[in-house]
């Protein structure tokens, strides 16, 4: 029984982790083929990402669009979460409706967006892609910020009021600092969602808005090369760096303040 557990556990962990473990080293292959064995190592595929117009542009696009979508989704999602904090008539339905982009198959949304964006003149524009990414990133921000708001004891805010803080100062001194971790992780999730988005991009982006994910998608389809592994490496490192920065930021915010009272 115990042996069976260990074997199953090992197999399952291997299944889950194998893809991540196998793709990363291929970023450093010197071969033209995206396959093992790696005969010698080189950085040529990272150079390729930098030199080739298609890859370079897609990385820049991903950063620009990701930043835009993150900003927009974080602002809108934070406002919504604050508005939905206390329940009112239909607030439950409203929240479920705002989370729908998580559920609706991306292809359906893509078709609808393509038609609508043509009418709105947003198709083949950076703004259009940012908006499309914001729609799918928004639910993640809402879930994350609502979660952190739900964790705030309302009595703490009431305490601030009774101690003389007007509503604006209650928000600034108490609510905002306490919800900030949720906002930050919402922003990270939004960025990761945008970075990974392919389907909507296929529908609403033109050749000038090609993102990294979109570029990987077509290069897996059309001309597979270790540049994909290099791009995967960049994405993973990027995600880890952003997540790490957030963790650092949070740790810094948690650290004790100097002993004199800050006024």
């Amino acid at each position: 029984m115990k042996a069976a557990k260990i074997v199953f556990g090992l197999l399952a962990v291997t299944f889950l982790m194998a893809p991540l473990v196998t793709i990363l080293p291929l970023a450093f292959t010197s071969s033209d083929l995206l396959s093992y064995p790696i005969r010698s190592f080189s950085l040529r595929w990272f150079e390729e990402l930098m030199i080739s117009d298609a890859w370079r542009m897609s990385i820049v696009n991903s950063l620009v669009i990701g930043a835009g979508a993150t900003l927009l989704a974080t602002v809108l999602g934070t406002l919504v979460s604050l508005g939905l904090r206390r329940s009112f008539a239909f607030s439950g339905i409203l929240k479920s409706a705002l989370l729908l982009p998580m559920v609706v198959p991306a292809v359906i949304l893509g078709v609808g967006m393509q038609i609508t964006f043509i009418q709105l003149g947003l198709v083949n524009t950076h703004v259009g892609v940012i908006i499309a990414h914001t729609v799918v990133a928004l639910p993640f921000v809402i879930v994350s910020v609502s979660g952190s708001l739900a964790g705030i004891d309302m009595r703490v805010e009431r305490a601030a009021m009774s101690l003389g803080a007007n509503p604006l100062r209650v928000f600034g001194h108490v609510t905002l600092p306490l919800m900030l971790p949720g906002v930050l992780s919402g922003a990270v999730l939004a960025f990761a969602t945008s970075l990974d988005e392919v389907v909507l991009t296929l529908f609403v982006a033109g050749p000038n808005q090609r993102t990294l994910a979109r570029q990987m998608f077509s290069s897996i389809r059309e001309n597979i090369s270790p540049a994909i592994a290099a791009a995967a490496f960049v994405i993973i490192v990027g995600t880890v760096v952003v997540a790490g920065l957030v963790l650092l930021f949070r740790a810094a915010a948690q650290r004790q303040k100097p002993s004199t009272v800050t006024v």
Partner: peptide, 29 residues
């Protein structure tokens, strides 16, 4: 065990699909 579930979840879908492409091909692992 928890990390093995969460790490793939946090990794880009496209990266994982690309990885399976590498693993599943005829000369793949």
């Amino acid at each position: 065990l928890i990390a093995s579930v969460l790490l793939p979840l946090w990794t880009s879908l496209l990266v994982r699909t690309a990885a399976w492409y590498v693993l599943l091909q005829d000369k793949g692992l």
